[in-house]
């Protein structure tokens, strides 16, 4: 989404661009100055300034906007956001006061997953087709809950893999979400002694670690 603005001065054009894109933070937007204003003689022949403006990170901006309004409507205050990305995976971490943390995470991270899901739909619809440059992933986390959970699972999978390699008996892990399973499959892929696969139906699909024959 790139817009072009003409105004009397560059500063004014920037202000208009911000209003039009619906933000008040200069850091969200990248500007390009096409031509600066020139006064001209006695008010004649003056040229207007022309700039283009677009979001630096539209995915993150729209997601933050949506989530903050959602939290407000849920009666939650005092939140802030942290975001980081590697060009393809966009991560948003919601920071909350302690009293609200458990509400937003929910049972086994249910609520944060629901928020993530709805946010994805919203952002996908907000960004028009031509602006989508390829595949991207949007992840929403609360106080690094999912991140820590993943790290725990990774450690567990590793120790289980060692056990399996020694004993030769297959081990079942508890049911996990698709993303968690994917990461564990990827982590154990390089281990020459064991193989992993998933079995069962969602949401009870689980990983089986077994020894390679």
């Amino acid at each position: 989404m790139k817009i072009t603005i003409e105004a009397k001065s560059v500063d004014e054009a920037k202000k208009i661009a911000l209003a039009e894109l619906g933000t008040d933070n200069y850091h969200d937007i990248s500007f390009e100055i096409l031509s600066e204003e020139s006064k001209g003689l006695f008010g004649f022949g003056g040229k207007k300034a022309k700039i283009t403006a677009e979001f630096k990170k539209p995915y993150i901006f729209f997601a933050k906007e949506f989530i903050s309004e959602l939290l407000k409507k849920m009666g939650i205050s005092g939140y802030s956001f942290e975001s980081y990305d590697n060009g393809k995976d966009f991560n948003i971490n919601i920071k909350l006061p302690l009293e609200f943390k458990s509400i937003i995470i929910g049972k086994f991270g249910q609520t944060v997953s629901a928020i993530e899901y709805i946010t994805r739909i919203h952002v996908n619809r907000k960004i028009s087709e031509e602006d989508k440059n390829g595949k991207y992933n949007l992840y929403v986390d609360v106080e690094n809950y999912k991140h820590e959970k993943l790290q725990k699972l990774e450690k567990m999978a590793e120790s289980l893999a060692e056990k399996v390699a020694i004993s030769g008996k297959s081990v079942e892990m508890k049911p996990m979400s698709a993303r968690e399973r994917k990461i564990i499959h990827m982590n154990l892929k390089n281990n020459p002694e064991i193989s992993t696969f998933s079995r069962g139906q969602e949401p009870y699909r689980k990983i089986i670690i077994s020894k390679k024959k």
Binding site: L70, T111, S113, A114, Y117, I118, I121
Partner: peptide, 16 residues
């Protein structure tokens, strides 16, 4: 029913 279930989860959390 994924979307409606997500909506239900969020409203339940807000009702907490």
């Amino acid at each position: 029913g994924r979307t409606i279930n997500a909506i239900r989860t969020i409203t339940k959390a807000a009702q907490n």
